[in-house]
Design a protein around this nucleic acid. Structure first.
Lengths: 213, 213, 213, 213
DNA sequence: CATGAATGAGTTTTCATTCAT
DNA sequence: CATGAATGAAAACTCATTCAT
């Protein structure tokens, strides 16, 4: 009101330096949210339940995340961040297109098979308003925060340019890549198939056949 | 309600006669539910809203469906039933494997593209607890009520036997078929690609390349 | 979605014909709200408590009033409506300015003294954001729904024109009229004074002295 | 904080020494509370917000005030204490009743007009449970801590004795005095009238007419 | 003394389901 | 059969207060 000598007068709804504080609670909340959403979907995961499973008070969630929406998006973000280095380890940057393609395909599939909870969460997430909004954002705002996609995208573009991959819109190639992969993993988690190394390899082969020229 | 092309397939599942005079409230409720769920998701479709759009009283829903869950599952079941004959029309039973495969692939894709409401509902459904439960049921109880799948399944089996299709588990072939198809249609509805006849054909081609030997 | 044959598809959040339905619950809720707010203020009147006192379920409140805000404003509106005819009974339209002034002054005071609950509610209301917003509306939007004020206003204007009342802004005259009146009634409810007929008459006299020329 | 003209009146009420070195956190909290309550009401002034604006930790508030209630009552008390000397400056003790009355009336009005924040706080306060409780206390416990009132009271008593002021209960005279004054100032802050020196004088005149014989 | 992270009781609001008419 | 008013359990979110550091 003009007289305000007291500098920082705006009320911080989530100040949180977080520089090096106890990341315990935050991590516990994120994990609890992911587990519950994977198990019961968004509907079956009220904040109170998340708090209980995380071993914190309900209010505590709101110290770390402004919103339930923010919490959920954060679960996703951290998951993506966790996945990226795993996929990039031993990335055969110098090898053939096919080998790099296989690296991603089998790497991602193995990660999802080894982390069924994470996979279930991602399934819930991508087909929810959250995931759709995120993908839309990514397309229209060029928010290329998800490096994993970028790398695969470059791979496709390089392949198209080299005449090794079919000249289809990137979105279609992505649909073939992720659509098949996710469906296969889902079938595995539901018990339709038992994916072993050999089957993973042959599935990757089939997907490669789909996109290669 | 005058638009109900499919009222033929709607017959009383509940113990009330409805021989001829009752206006088809049941169908109206099913249609309203599908529309609303497609538009707003399960969250955005309270029973009162469904009733209003169907032009019936709230309580009426519970005369035809024991539960909201039952209603939703019924919407799905009727939709599947509606799709099957559409896909079987002009089925080239006597032509090559490839041609029959194409018939299904492009037929299903075209149906989904032409009926975005139905597609959105199916998306909502499959990734919800409802869909997961249904698929789980289908595995463990062998309830193969979905004839559409059966036909495609026979196609795959025939192809494998003839050495024309890769000898992969049927589930994997399904994943390649439906996983890609659904992802492509979704990208279209989200505006990521514009699917025209040519692109549909080329996508079908790619999927065929994936599974053919 | 274009195909909507079903006419009234917009979801009515509070349809409510109310033409001749049971006004019981609505009235009970209004009364309960007024009582609680009078007794405990807005803070001390959670919806659950209002529902309990009204003898209805919590949800029922939301069938009759979209909002807690709407409920509160409605309590006020009905109260005003209830007061108006009381003040207009035996209004000496043909008598002197002074007599008509006295009629309002003592009439309003008597009503407030006889209805301490209503008075307490009005006190809470006028000094809350609700009341301020309402008065602001009334000034700027010319929403002259409150006839009581209008009549008093005309009285003042007539008096000014006739040279019988001081030529002060209407707002000031209102402040003298209502400000004093409300303070006096408040003092009575708090036990500062015991207002009897004689004292009411003399207070009216004093207020008249304040505004008369 | 550097603006604290009134830090003189602030001395340790709690059992901590604060001889000189401690920055006056107590005063900062009081000021922050008053500002926020004036701006946003009691609802819009959570303790965390008050602490932030005061530049202290949340917990600190509870070192100086046992309770939020106590804090608010203390804000009021200090404000009253601050107003009193201002009104007593140049008090024309030797002049006529009318002149002394005018001194208070215009002095208080001017103070409230010049300190809209303080006025808004007082408005919030008097009509809240806090203010009501306080006034009730004052009646029943005869805690006449408010000297300002006492002086005005003496003025009225003197006037009555001298036959210059109507022989009405003191409470009624107070109601006329403060009720009108506060209503007028409120109308000004709400933009209903523009109070200038001339209008203030004439309003004082009207109030005097109300109480004089 | 000062802090601010943690808490959980309490608040408003929604909605699937029932049942008297 | 059809209705829709009534319900209350449950959900997201807030905030005064405490207490370990």
């Amino acid at each position: 009101m003009g007289l305000n000598v007291h500098s920082a007068t705006t009320f911080p709804r989530k100040p949180h330096d977080m520089t090096r504080e106890t990341p315990d609670k935050r991590a516990a909340i994120l994990r609890a949210a992911m587990e519950l959403i994977a198990e019961n979907g968004f509907h079956g995961s009220p904040t109170a339940m998340i708090a209980t499973r995380a071993g914190v008070g309900t209010g505590t969630i709101y110290r770390y995340f402004t919103d339930k929406d923010v919490l959920i998006r954060e679960v996703h973000r951290e998951l993506e961040e966790r996945m990226h280095p795993i996929l990039m380890v031993h990335y055969p940057a110098e090898r053939s297109l096919k080998e790099r393609f296989d690296h991603f395909y089998t790497g991602l599939m193995r990660f999802l098979l080894d982390n069924p909870m994470e996979f279930k969460f991602l399934e819930q997430f991508y087909d929810s308003p959250y995931g759709v909004a995120m993908r839309r954002d990514k397309i229209f705002n060029q928010k290329t925060s998800e490096q994993r996609c970028d790398t695969v995208k470059s791979l496709f573009e390089e392949g198209i340019a080299a005449g090794a991959i079919k000249d289809l819109p990137i979105a279609i190639l992505f649909a073939i890549f992720f659509g098949t992969l996710v469906s296969v993993v889902r079938d595995h988690t539901l018990g339709f198939v038992e994916l072993d190394d050999e089957l993973i390899r042959r599935t990757a082969e089939a997907s490669w056949d789909a996109i290669r020229r």
